[in-house]
């Protein structure tokens, strides 16, 4: 780890000032990804701003509009086991429990989870080129080892994926990220929070360098009955998703009123295709329909050799997830049989 100074501001305002004080300042909360990356010399901040004790960001509260506001510093564990989350947003609870381990979930925060960086091997290895880590050096993953890489929304400069499970569920639930910056507070819809790599793969999100996440807000719950989080990976636990699917359906009898489908492990951000979701409206859940929806979601998917299989895997995962959601039999994160 490089040398850096450390500050522990007592208020959000102070934290914003600390962050603005140095261009290479970094915010630390749980530290589960940042400290990891600092040891690999992937992150070399000169100033660390410890926000872990900021007041008011550690609770889960009602929004007043029927939704729930999860403070940025709420641990992944606390969010996953919160009874309101479990009852009203079981998809979110399930997705969080599909990720990482009990130890990591205890330390990792809601805000930090959104900001975790890709697990691309090349990004993680400071000895090799990577345009996300060092702009302009290129992407060796494209013709290298790319089993875990993206099939959608890639660019010539980067084929990394976003590794979060939680963010995939939040995308399906249309959460909103509340942020504070020097110019005040603003809302970023989750769909716009993460970005595609394009020509600037070094930027993972649309959060300003001088901004801090305050909370994630969930709109009124609609998908507590027909949902699933299906995660496929290279071992049965403690591995990042090759493909994951958050599926949520609002049903009226045997007809779909509204559908949300977000994919993880396939792109630089949780992948949603609203046009595909609309295709389910008014339909009875049926494999044929699911297949059409899956094909629409994966329109334009492109493999790089090692990850070609993900296209077919993602297609099948969408179909399975939709049938789990429609049947009201969400995937268990402990029973490794897939329903």
């Amino acid at each position: 780890m490089n040398r850096f100074s450390y500050a522990r501001p007592g208020s959000v305002a102070d934290a914003l000032r600390e962050v603005a004080s140095s261009p290479a300042a970094k915010i630390i909360a749980g530290g589960t990804n940042l400290v990891d990356l600092m040891k690999y010399n992937v992150e070399r901040p000169t100033h660390l701003v410890d926000v872990s004790r900021l007041p008011g960001l550690k609770s889960i509260e009602e929004t007043g509009e029927g939704g729930l506001r999860i403070g940025a510093l709420v641990s992944n564990t606390s969010a996953a086991y919160d009874t309101r989350v479990q009852e009203r947003y079981p998809l979110l609870s399930s997705a969080i429990l599909a990720g990482a381990t009990a130890q990591l979930r205890n330390a990792a925060t809601t805000g930090g989870n959104l900001l975790q960086r890709t697990r691309c091997y090349y990004f993680y290895d400071a000895a090799v080129p990577c345009s996300k880590r060092e702009p302009g050096t290129g992407c060796p993953a494209k013709d290298g080892v790319n089993r875990i890489h993206a099939i959608l929304g890639t660019s010539d400069k980067c084929i990394a994926t976003h590794p979060s499970d939680m963010a995939v569920a939040l995308a399906a639930l249309e959460a909103v990220v509340k942020v504070a910056g020097p110019r005040g507070e603003r809302d970023i819809p989750l769909a716009d929070f993460h970005r595609l790599p394009g020509d600037t793969p070094e930027k993972d999100t649309n959060l300003g360098a001088d901004e801090i996440i305050l909370a994630v807000e969930l709109p009124e719950a609609r998908f507590a009955k027909n949902y699933t989080y299906l995660k496929l990976r290279d071992r049965l636990s403690y591995a990042f998703a090759l493909v994951s699917v958050a599926a949520a359906l609002e049903m009226d009898g045997d007809k779909v009123v509204e559908a949300r489908i977000a994919l993880g492990g396939v792109a630089h951000k949780p992948w949603r295709v609203p046009e595909a979701e609309v295709m389910l409206r008014g339909k009875a859940p049926d494999r044929m329909v699911f297949e059409t929806v899956a094909d629409r979601i994966l329109l334009g998917a492109k493999g790089y050799g090692g990850n070609d299989f993900k296209i077919e895997l993602a297609r099948r995962a969408v179909i399975r997830a939709l049938s789990q959601a429609a049947a009201g039999t969400p995937q268990s994160q402990t029973d490794k049989r897939i329903q």
Partner: peptide, 19 residues
């Protein structure tokens, strides 16, 4: 194609600022 010449250079600059 990635810049494989990148491999031929290794090491970071020391931190400029304090401390």
């Amino acid at each position: 194609m990635a810049d494989l010449e990148f491999l031929a250079r290794q090491g970071f600059a020391p931190d400029a600022g304090p401390p």
